[in-house]
């Protein structure tokens, strides 16, 4: 009747995914400008780790923990791991479409898919945009139709 099912969820430092989104933005920007499928593939692997193991296990999260976090003065704010993990899986889907586009020689598909993933990563980094908030319910509605 009420309340989100209280599955015991993992909490992570909320600033980590935001930092990772900034790195992701740079990597996807590079992929878009160079048209390099290898850069997109690299990002897809990072997304795959984030979507399966969790965003706290990606190389970007490692950079955050070892270089950025010790220098931060802002108080620790934690969040449920599921929203950023969900966003990683959306990123993975877009980069896989991009790679498939490049592999079949349709560079337009590559460009559009990388652009979409880039827009989402940039919005997350710059505006703290929550992809799961906007997309998940729509997906759930479509799926149950």
């Amino acid at each position: 009747m009420s309340s989100v099912t209280s599955v015991k969820s993992i909490e992570i430092d909320a600033r980590g995914p935001r930092f990772s989104a900034a790195i992701t933005t740079l990597v996807l920007a590079l992929a878009l400008v160079t048209g390099s499928v290898w850069v997109a593939l690299f990002q897809a692997i990072v997304f795959a780790i984030g979507a399966t193991k969790g965003p706290q296990f990606t190389p970007y999260a490692f950079i955050y923990r070892s270089l950025i976090k010790p220098r931060l003065k802002s108080p620790l704010r934690t969040e449920d791991v599921r929203p950023p993990k969900f966003a990683q899986s959306i990123g993975l889907a877009f980069t896989l479409v991009a790679i498939a586009g490049a592999a079949t020689g349709t560079s337009m598909v590559f460009t559009v898919a990388v652009a979409a993933a880039l827009a989402a990563a940039f919005l997350n980094a710059a505006f703290d945009f929550c992809l799961g908030c906007q997309v998940y319910l729509l997906l759930a509605r479509i799926r149950s139709n």
Binding site: A29, V33, F122, L123, F127
Partner: peptide, 23 residues
């Protein structure tokens, strides 16, 4: 397609959307 134009277009569109969204 080695051009920065698509990149600038994406960042500009996302920024406009982001500002509106946050507002």
């Amino acid at each position: 397609m080695k051009s920065v134009l698509p990149l600038l277009a994406v960042l500009a569109a996302a920024s406009v959307f982001g500002i509106w969204f946050r507002h």
